[in-house]
Design a protein around this nucleic acid. Structure first.
Lengths: 184, 184
DNA sequence: GCAAAATAGAAGTCATCACTCCGCTTATCG
DNA sequence: CGATAAGCGGAGTGATGACTTCTATTTTGC
């Protein structure tokens, strides 16, 4: 179990980064070769790091989940319980605003998102749980909501954003969802 | 421009119907041959009716839009203005509940949904507009909402449904969106 | 009942990928 | 510095699948 060489680490990160951009922009139908070229590495290198296209996509997806989970955790510990959840939603959705495709990517790759249950998935679920419970305790979010629905609303709102014509439209969509989240 | 023969019409419809089922179930990666087999027609026949796989998929998609538009129109003319829009949303979302995939299909086929601007697209847009304005006039839906956002919310809510664990979860998601739609 | 239109589906073409293999390069460590 | 193995690039391979073509057969419309 010797540590990997420095350039290997660098390349892996580089591939993940580039793959995310390319996949989000062109969909999962892009060839691995194109991803490799965009990342500035040979195909061989790409396949050594990710033995399968599916594994590459999964890697990209999990990296994204990890970032989301980190954001959620930060807000859960540092932020105001009453507003942390809306703030998170707003931020997460704005992030994916440019091009969503989060789960759609996997779906079109034939992977069922809902069966994904790795560590990042769990981490996100947990962080969202904390965020949700705090908000409910603070009385700013309806009490009947649970984590799975929250995740759904997150994904759904991202999706909805794609259809908004402009920033004002996006704002209105977010307003609908946030209003709907409030305690009734 | 002689009218097509009866069996040709029948086959076309049959292909569209079957393709929808198969595509929704297995994703756009299924081979055309498989679709043809499922529809009980030869490959040649399939390709005569839809010269391209993309055109077939587009056909399926448009058929679906037409059905949606028809539903919306019916509710707009027959239903109670105050409740027609929520009723439509509920119904549309429940319909896609079994398998959403509506737009995801096209996306994974490399077609951009937002650039689709055929007749069915327009019909749906128009019907939704009527539905929306009536509801706003009746005071049951927030006045700041416009059609693009409504379409987005429709797509987004469908998506969100996929993540709900059970019927209760789906109900809660719908409740969030419907509450958010209400006039503030 | 017959000509025209349509169909089944076998066989073949051709392009596109995912993935493999292997000779070369370079980071790392003594 | 030099050895060495970890890592790299990219030509090549095999499978797949969209689409074509063609013949024998069936269906339809008049």
């Amino acid at each position: 179990m010797t540590p990997p060489r420095a350039d290997a680490v660098r390349n892996r990160a580089r591939i993940l980064d580039t793959a995310e951009q390319v996949l989000v922009e062109h969909g999962t139908t892009v060839s691995t070769e194109e991803i490799a070229k965009a990342a500035g590495v040979g195909i061989g290198t790409l396949f050594r790091h990710f033995p399968t296209k599916e594994e590459l996509i999964r890697g990209v997806f999990e990296a994204r989940l990890e970032r989301l989970a980190a954001d959620a955790t930060r807000l859960a510990t540092e932020g105001d319980p009453a507003t942390a959840l809306p703030a998170f939603l707003r931020q997460a959705v704005e992030q994916s605003e440019v091009k969503n495709a989060l789960a759609g990517m996997l779906a079109s790759a034939g992977v069922d998102v809902h069966e994904l249950s790795g560590a990042p998935q769990r981490a996100l679920r947990e962080a969202l749980g904390t965020l949700l419970h705090k908000a409910q305790q603070a009385g700013t979010v309806r009490r009947d909501l649970e984590v799975p629905e929250l995740i759904g609303l997150l994904a759904g709102t991202s999706k909805a954003m794609e259809y908004a014509g402009d920033a004002a439209g996006r704002h209105r969509i977010l307003a609908v969802v946030l209003d709907g989240l409030r305690a009734t």
